[in-house]
């Protein structure tokens, strides 16, 4: 694993961007871009990142950026990738779509699936803050079971989230990863690895969102880590046909450490306030998590 001191000092995101204080997605893009370097073209659909860039006539990203409509990240990246291929620059310039969970799980899945099926040469990042963060925390396909959102305001979400990264892995793309912004060194390593793969690479980064998760900004990283430590978020990658767990999730899978109690993660977050009052629903939450663990363990073969 890369050490902190080995992380490049180049910053591709400027001071004074518009992310909320404690934003996990911004930690993620910072280290993703350190790995990819400046020879990268970004396309950003409607998501928090379209706000984080800041206001016209300035922009907080030191890269060429095509902001595009909500559902088009996969398609816009396909066009950029095709254009670079026409120019013979497809091997020199990275193309990355940087989309939120709404733009990936929900409105953008068609364009993404199409791009993956066409084996488009690009990296697609879904930074998953588990709601429509940009528009005020409405429910998305990525919102966890039982969580409060502004469109599930009283009961909380009644469905489990989609296994998006697994859906993408099953497209047969050469590289898929599910990681967390709470582990920036892993973010850096994952993108460093993905950079050298040719074809569609899908990376989902669990992105802490103090605003949406109803927690203190200084606890942002803590909850990102707790999600992994309690097994709520599973870190894994699929390289070629090989599936493997990553980081702390690997140690959990191998039985080296035990998952922390689920309540450690749920209880302090305001968004689970209703959920935790109902033990049956907490069990249902856990059933969803365990199911995902079982499926992934089968894939990994442990």
């Amino acid at each position: 694993m890369v050490t902190i001191k080995e992380l490049p000092r180049d910053e591709y995101i400027e001071l004074g961007h518009a992310a909320c204080a404690g934003c996990g997605a911004t930690i993620a893009i910072r280290h993703a871009l350190k790995a990819l370097g400046g020879n990268t073209i970004l396309t950003v659909p409607a998501c928090c990142m379209s706000v984080i860039q800041g206001l016209f006539p300035k922009n907080a990203l030191h890269l060429p950026v095509l902001n595009t409509a909500f559902e088009t990240a996969g398609a816009a990246a396909s066009g950029i990738a095709a254009g670079l291929k026409f120019m013979g620059k497809d091997k020199d310039i990275n193309v990355m779509a940087w989309a939120g969970d709404g733009g990936t799980y929900d409105i953008g899945i068609q364009a993404l699936s199409g791009a993956a099926e066409r084996q488009t040469n690009f990296i697609y990042t879904c930074y998953n803050n588990e709601s429509y963060g940009n528009t005020g925390q409405q429910r998305s396909g990525a919102t966890p079971y039982g969580a409060f959102s502004t469109t599930t305001p009283i009961i909380g979400k009644q469905e489990h989230r989609k296994p998006m990264a697994r859906i993408m892995a099953e497209h047969g793309i050469p590289y898929t990863a599910s990681i967390s912004a709470a582990y920036p060194r892993l973010v850096f390593e994952t993108y460093s690895k993905a950079k050298d793969v040719v074809g569609t690479r899908f990376i989902e980064v669990h992105a802490m969102c103090p605003t949406g998760w109803r927690c203190a900004t200084w606890d942002s990283v803590k909850f990102g880590k707790l999600a992994v430590e309690t097994g709520v978020w599973i870190m894994w990658e699929k390289e070629g046909d090989e599936w493997r767990f990553l980081g702390l999730s690997k140690r959990i899978a191998e039985g080296k450490i035990k998952r922390k109690p689920l309540m450690d993660y749920l209880k302090p977050q305001g968004r689970f306030r209703t959920l935790i009052k109902d033990p049956e629903r907490v069990k249902e939450f856990e059933r969803g998590i365990n199911r995902e663990w079982e499926i992934l363990k089968k894939r990994v073969g442990c």
């Binding site: 595009t68 088009t72 816009a76 254009g83 364009a111 199409g114």
Partner: peptide
């Protein structure tokens, strides 16, 4: 480069991406 996209919406988005180069 001929991109056989999966919808017209994506066709125009892909054209926008390429034209932006």
């Amino acid at each position: 480069e001929y991109v056989r996209v999966e919808s017209e919406h994506s066709a125009m988005a892909a054209c926008i991406g390429a034209s932006a180069l």
